[in-house]
Design a protein around this nucleic acid. Structure first.
Lengths: 361, 361
DNA sequence: CTGAAAGCGCTAACAA
DNA sequence: TTGTTAGCGCTTTCAG
């Protein structure tokens, strides 16, 4: 890097002025700017000197008007209040996406969807012609936004499962993750394993329940309705559904579909006079940092959020730049069981498989 | 709202086509688009009908080329790893900013600064001509980015204290917050109050230390060097500095400049055989959600992060739209003491003053 | 009240 | 290898 563009003249130069200063035409300057071969070395140097001296930067807006591309990616995240305050999911995802953008010379535009102004923001996003493509995170199953984006042919990558043909997606392996959780409980001797599910409007909720069931089946344990309580990922539901479970069934293991719910579930268990993990062993999901803290006997399933972000961004960029054939990609990243209890303090990694990449048409 | 723009033709229409369809000139369409008065009602209706029917949206890029404005705000956040994973600060701030943007028909562009690619991102931001103005959060004292932005005359609002003349800022009242903390400790009978500071490269670190000192002075207690340990907001430093404090002084109260550090401080205290809060009462800062959890005897000082975000955005937008005189504003929002200990479970609000707004030239 | 024409800053044929 | 010309989609004088 040449010793930091010092002595830069802070101005709003245009290509015209550069051309004048260099004594060439605007096209020539443009050629230099775009590394066109058809410029003599002499001219190139002359022009480049002026460009450096003035600190000239071509207007991205003018460029976009011609190219039809802005080099801007959009990120849409629904902000469910509960998760916002506890969960670094969004921060970490954004970090992954942001670094992939930087790497590829893209910038990132952000929409946080608050439930009450959903419609307005949707219109805003849909009519926004400033972005080249969009990453949509954790949308509800059958969300109208996705449909409309598809109609508009917006290049799209979904973070989380998505069944729309033609839409790429990046997801954690929620099914396998939940299976890991159940099997862990089985491995420490639990046989009566209950669950508190997430929202059934989210694939993460649906898939974690599916994984729970499959884990039971593969362990030759029965699936009992009375051991399934339907939460919605909020702390409150974790508490209430635990009370409900306690009322209607007996269990010595509990798989909770999110750490946030798991915290309040543990609280409810303790209030009911049960010891965790002695009487009921609990496994959560997400590995939120509060769990890493002292005295919380919570084993959990971790998803590679940052990686999901960067892969999503990279997938979208590849798609935009046609680096790959325009087939949709379904990428599923492995989860990791993090064992954290009184007896064992350190995290135990268990990568069960290399990244799975499926390609569909 | 007319029954949701149904039957919209999903196309990339231009003003030219609308003009042709409506049988008028492009100028007239433009006038309708911009609510110009000089259009007959008849024509207006005719044109508007076509616009609605086609779902036409004018290209923001073309508009920007003319107006020189993009209606895009930038947000720059340094991503210190430690805070990223524990701290919802960024999420909440972004939420506040985002909602103000939506309200004003702006969109938000995001840069997360990872320490290792700082220089590259700075150049990226500085040369980005896509944004009308920038919100910079928690930058280090004397950060080169701010200087360079000022040179470039980028409209700017700082989240956090900033002394540059001409730069508006929105900050929590860290000084008063720390005073609240100290006075609380005094009020519960502590007289030997130590502190673990934040990073001295951040105003939040500096100001919280200043508030600690002022709190002692106003309580007629001595300021002792041996009771001050310099941390850097990371969990690790909280732990180490507590050990250090324990080695060099005796204290029955501890003000820690962030909850993140406070957690590990408590751990260190407990490992040293001290009871919290009986032997040492601890007050943190930030009110991070993990603190809200069971069994953590941590009183803390809360800052109105979301509000800071929305006010920052609104201030910037006002500045851009010249709604106010172009004087810089320094806005300082009050903090709130949140008492949370074994004896008292519910949060106790203590608004000490209405918003303070200072205006400087 | 409406249309024709010029131009925002840049790129991309097409000539020279 | 270079300059000239047109035009991306829109707004904005300036005539009419």
């Amino acid at each position: 890097m040449p010793k930091e563009n010092a002595g830069k003249i802070t101005s709003m130069t245009t290509i015209k002025e550069i051309a004048k200063l260099a004594g060439v035409s605007r096209s020539t300057v443009s050629r230099v700017l775009n590394n066109d071969e058809n410029v003599s070395d002499q001219t190139r140097v002359k022009v480049q000197t002026i460009i450096n001296k003035t600190g000239y930067q071509p207007s991205p807006v003018a460029r976009s008007l011609i190219s039809g591309r802005t080099h801007v990616l959009g990120l849409v995240v629904p902000m469910i209040v509960s998760s916002l305050f506890r969960d670094p999911f969004f921060s970490i995802l954004a970090q992954g996406i942001s670094s992939a953008c930087t790497l590829n010379n893209y910038t990132l535009m952000l929409w946080l969807i608050e439930p009450h102004s959903e419609q307005r923001i949707y219109d805003n996003i849909l009519n926004n012609r400033l972005i080249d493509g969009l990453i949509v995170s954790s949308s509800k199953i059958g969300d109208r936004l996705i449909e409309r984006l598809i109609e508009k042919k917006t290049p799209l990558v979904q973070v989380g499962r998505n069944d729309c043909p033609g839409v790429s997606s990046v997801d954690a392996d929620n099914i396998h993750g939940a299976m890991q959780a159940v099997k862990h409980l089985v491995s420490i001797g639990r046989r009566q394993i209950a669950t508190i599910t997430g929202q059934m409007e989210l694939y993460s909720g649906v898939d974690r329940l599916a994984g729970y069931k499959r884990g039971l089946v593969e362990s030759s344990l029965p699936i009992l309705d009375e051991r399934i309580a339907f939460g919605n990922f909020t702390e409150e539901s974790g508490y209430n559904q635990t009370k409900l479970l306690l009322a209607k069934s007996k269990f010595d293991g509990l798989f909770v579909a999110s750490d946030t719910m798991a915290f309040s579930a543990i609280q409810a268990l303790q209030e009911a006079g049960l010891r965790v993990p002695e009487d009921v062993a609990v496994v959560g999901f997400d590995d939120i940092p509060a769990a890493a803290h002292n005295h919380i006997p919570l084993t959990t399933v971790r998803q590679p959020i940052q990686k999901m972000g960067s892969i999503a961004a990279q997938t979208l960029i590849d798609q935009l730049e046609q680096k790959d054939t325009s087939t949709a990609r379904r990428i599923i990243l492995p989860t990791e069981l993090v064992i954290r209890d009184s007896t064992k303090k350190s995290a135990f990694s268990n990568h069960y498989a290399p990244d799975q990449v499926q390609t569909t048409t």
